[in-house]
Simulated scan of single mutants.
Amino acid sequence: MKSVCLALIIVSIFAVSIQTTYSQRVYANFEEDSYTILLANVINPSFASDPDLTNYSRLQVNVGLIGSIGTARQNLQFTGTLKPEPTAPIMIRFRYGGALLGLSNVFNVQRTDGGLNQTEGDIYTGSTLLGLLGLDEAEDSGEVIVPIPATSVPTDGVQIRLSALIGIGPFAELFYAFFITPPTVEFTTVYVCQGESALISISNFQSGYTYRVYDALTEGNLIYSGTTDVLSIPEEDLTTGTYYLEAVEGGTAFTSSRTAFDIVIYPKPGYPEIDLNVNEN
């Protein structure tokens, strides 16, 4: 009995740790799917959008008449109040087999807006997905979390598509999709006296994340990086203008979209000139 209780405690601590570590993730909560009847299938489709992060749906092409083409699609959508910004990457976790990522025309991923087949932005195939992962070549099977880059238009989901000749045998198992909640800045305009540091307060701060300040909405120059709820940026690194804050998940390269805020720097007042004329009465 003691060992069972200990195991339950360990599991509970692990679950709390995971929740804390990934507390700024927003997971896709709705799925749609389609497939070629008899030639392909999507098994357990709801598993990719339910609260259990350990189970998965499976897209597969069925064994059958060689030369026929089967297609399976699944779209994961964010239907809550908070949706990914156009500049936010969407991360998907999936497992693959049958040298899937080495077959450029078999598997692709694309962002969507409004549901299944409502695709937006670039299509990422096997070879371009390898590029996003920083890999030169794919293993026959594996499990990855890959960030699908932002688009220039709003999106609220991501779709994966598997299309192959019967008999080739690739499959994809989709665990979940998520994006990182962007930081909320307590004051959108921060006033700084020359020579003092700018204090940037993060209202939705979470431990386990690094917060980085840039001088552009995308790309740009890194100005400051910190892991506290109040970032203290030296004034000498700043000029009056607009800056952008993003959250980065600890131990990963998963980033949020960036939140804009303004910094206004006031120069120190000069010393007054005093003209003393000792000869005046």
Score class of each variant (00 low, 15 high):
278 V>M: 14
224 Y>L: 12
228 T>Q: 10
239 T>W: 13
238 L>M: 09
230 V>C: 04
18 I>L: 15
177 A>M: 00
256 S>N: 06
126 G>A: 01
266 Y>C: 10
172 A>G: 02
235 E>L: 06
261 F>G: 03
47 F>M: 11
65 L>K: 07
58 R>V: 14
250 G>N: 03
258 R>D: 08
104 S>D: 15
109 V>Y: 06
1 M>T: 10
34 S>W: 08
218 T>W: 08
103 L>E: 06
62 N>M: 10
63 V>G: 10
44 N>Q: 12
185 V>F: 11
67 G>L: 03
68 S>W: 06
263 I>S: 03
101 L>H: 03
184 T>M: 14
52 D>Q: 08
219 E>F: 14
226 G>L: 02
93 R>S: 13
93 R>D: 12
128 T>L: 01
169 G>S: 05
200 I>M: 13
203 S>L: 14
135 L>A: 10
138 A>P: 04
14 F>Q: 11
104 S>E: 10
49 S>L: 05
211 Y>H: 05
258 R>C: 03
212 R>Y: 09
109 V>R: 00
148 I>P: 02
29 N>I: 06
219 E>R: 14
1 M>P: 09
178 F>L: 03
56 Y>A: 13
248 V>M: 12
232 S>N: 15
20 T>K: 15
124 Y>E: 00
116 L>C: 06
14 F>K: 12
140 D>T: 15
141 S>M: 14
35 Y>H: 07
56 Y>C: 06
242 T>K: 10
73 R>A: 02
80 G>D: 04
65 L>W: 09
57 S>I: 01
91 M>Q: 04
170 P>M: 05
81 T>F: 11
157 G>P: 01
183 P>E: 12
204 N>E: 15
20 T>V: 08
269 P>I: 04
238 L>H: 04
114 G>E: 05
228 T>P: 02
279 N>W: 10
55 N>W: 09
89 P>I: 04
46 S>M: 14
26 V>S: 09
164 A>C: 04
62 N>G: 01
36 T>C: 03
182 P>T: 01
135 L>V: 06
117 N>F: 11
49 S>H: 04
78 F>T: 02
43 I>P: 02
86 P>R: 05
178 F>G: 00
257 S>F: 03
159 Q>C: 14
255 T>I: 13
